[in-house]
């Protein structure tokens, strides 16, 4: 592999990992608080659609991003309401939401765009960070990325600091490990878990917007194609840690990027096999390759006093 090709591969790995990273960190926060947020896929799709509509209608991708964020809020609140207040099964309710969103966005897309489905949608701007962006070959290929990626990295650093050093982080960890202790210490489990699900929704909305107006500048029906589930898998792969989850997202991103790189190198691997690769890795991860004992003990269990 030439250095140019490798730089392109690295760059596209990061680009493809970004939505996973954004959604994955949000999912991790939600799971650390004890809510298995399966609706991350639906949240991403909702935001991808709303961001595309917003950007197309106003011509301003930033407004599109805001559309995406706002559109996910009711979905996140619905998930939080089902899994905390109604104590519904989190997996079933999450999948239900995913199917609902898939149907709703497909219908709305056909109604709104119809024949104009090839219309170009204005996308988020790319930035070239100083110093890093000036490195020859690697600079433009690897570091020239949509600004949302850099904003996301900053957010992830903030999340890491909050989890480690603040009372909020302590409360989130305890809510997923020993919710009784949280309740008895005078904090509200419901408030913590609602907040974490909404935060996961916010991160998923950034991820969804990145897909439609950051990456390919268009919306297609069901365009998340399981990225939300990959984000969940990366949380498991990363053992519910920020560093691990981020690395897992990069790995899945790289596995996806291979689809485009291997044919370019003239290596004859069936494309369908390559498309399977990240999902195959995810299956191995979830299937106990990393052990289950790291999961927050109360993950997926609604709290009852």
């Amino acid at each position: 592999m030439t250095s140019e090709l490798f730089a392109v591969f690295l760059g596209s790995s990061i680009r493809l990992a970004t939505p996973l990273l954004l959604a994955g960190i949000g999912e991790m926060v939600s799971e650390r608080a004890g809510v298995l947020n399966m609706s991350i896929e639906g949240m991403m799709l909702m935001s991808a659609f709303a961001a595309a509509v917003g950007s197309w209608a106003t011509g301003d991708p930033f407004v599109g991003l805001l559309f995406g964020i706002v559109s996910v809020l009711p979905v996140a609140l619905l998930q939080a309401f089902l899994s905390n207040t109604l104590r519904a099964n989190q997996i079933v309710s999450g999948i239900g939401i995913n199917i609902l969103v898939l149907g709703a966005t497909t219908l709305a897309y056909r109604e709104i765009f119809g024949a104009r489905s090839r219309a170009e949608i204005p996308g988020l701007a790319k930035v070239k960070p100083p110093l890093l962006g000036d490195i020859p070959v690697i600079g433009p290929a690897v570091f020239e990325q949509v600004w949302l990626l850099y904003a996301g990295i900053a957010l992830i650093v903030i999340v890491a600091l909050v989890l480690r050093f603040t009372s909020v982080g302590l409360a989130i960890h305890a809510a997923g490990a020993e919710p009784k202790a949280v309740d008895k210490s005078g904090l509200s489990i419901a408030r913590i878990r609602y907040a974490c699900v909404v935060f996961a929704g916010f991160m998923a909305s950034l991820a969804g917007a990145f897909l439609s107006i950051g990456d390919i500048h268009t919306f297609t029906e069901g365009m998340t194609r399981g990225a939300g589930y990959l984000a969940i898998a990366s949380v498991i792969f990363g053992k519910w840690r920020i560093g691990g989850t981020s690395l897992a997202c990069l790995l899945f991103g790289a596995a996806t990027a291979l689809q485009f790189q291997l044919p370019a190198l003239g290596i004859g691997v069936p494309n369908a096999l390559l498309i399977m690769l990240p999902y195959l890795l995810a299956l191995l991860a979830v299937g106990g390759l990393v052990g289950r004992q790291m999961a927050p003990p109360s993950l997926g269990e609604p709290y009852r006093r």
Binding site: T166, S167, L170, V182, S185
Partner: peptide
Amino acid sequence: SLVGDLSVVDNVLLGRERGI
């Protein structure tokens, strides 16, 4: 009702202090 993988200090701090 203690959080097993946290330290004694963290368990005592839970719900008592706000912020950093």
